[in-house]
């Protein structure tokens, strides 16, 4: 395993960008950090500044007010950065698809590495998604 992948997969600092969500996804993300699931066991922590982050976690359907900000956040992030679209809104915009102010699903705005569907996804689904992503990164590195 290369040094980069090994270092990145063992310590993920997450920056949570709430792009006009309904807050259900946000609550489920905080649930994943509570004593029942305790993601800090695997080195996953929430951080306050995008400059400290390795993961940009986006919730909600991106609308016209936040589309510039999410682009700016992606540009401000120190690379390599992993982008996670959390919840059905960020993945596919579900029922807000034909709304007058949404700007398309997240992967039309910035490159997305992981989709976690669900409305909201359960903490187990979030953890399973992260594990799948890490395994995929490691498998890709082995080839």
């Amino acid at each position: 395993m290369s040094f980069t992948v090994d270092a990145l997969t063992k310590s993920l600092n997450v920056f949570h960008a709430a792009c006009s969500p309904c807050n259900n996804c946000d609550i489920e993300i905080l649930d994943a950090l509570t004593p029942r699931y305790d993601l800090e066991r695997f080195g996953i922590q929430l951080v306050g500044s995008i400059r400290h982050a390795d993961v940009l976690l986006v919730t909600g359907a991106v609308n016209k007010k936040v589309v510039h900000r999410i682009k700016a956040l992606y540009e401000q992030a120190p690379k390599p950065i992993i982008v996670i679209a959390n919840g059905s809104c960020a993945c596919s915009e579900i029922l807000f698809r034909d709304s007058y102010n949404t700007c398309g699903p997240l992967d039309k705005i910035i490159p997305v590495d992981l989709y976690i569907p669900g409305c909201p996804p359960r903490p187990e689904a979030i953890i399973a998604g992260v594990v799948k992503l890490l395994n995929a990164v490691r498998a890709k590195d082995k080839k």
Partner: peptide, 11 residues
């Protein structure tokens, strides 16, 4: 791990 990971990040 945290320190090692920060060493590979962009400044």
């Amino acid at each position: 791990y945290d320190i090692k990971k920060l060493l590979i990040k962009e400044t």
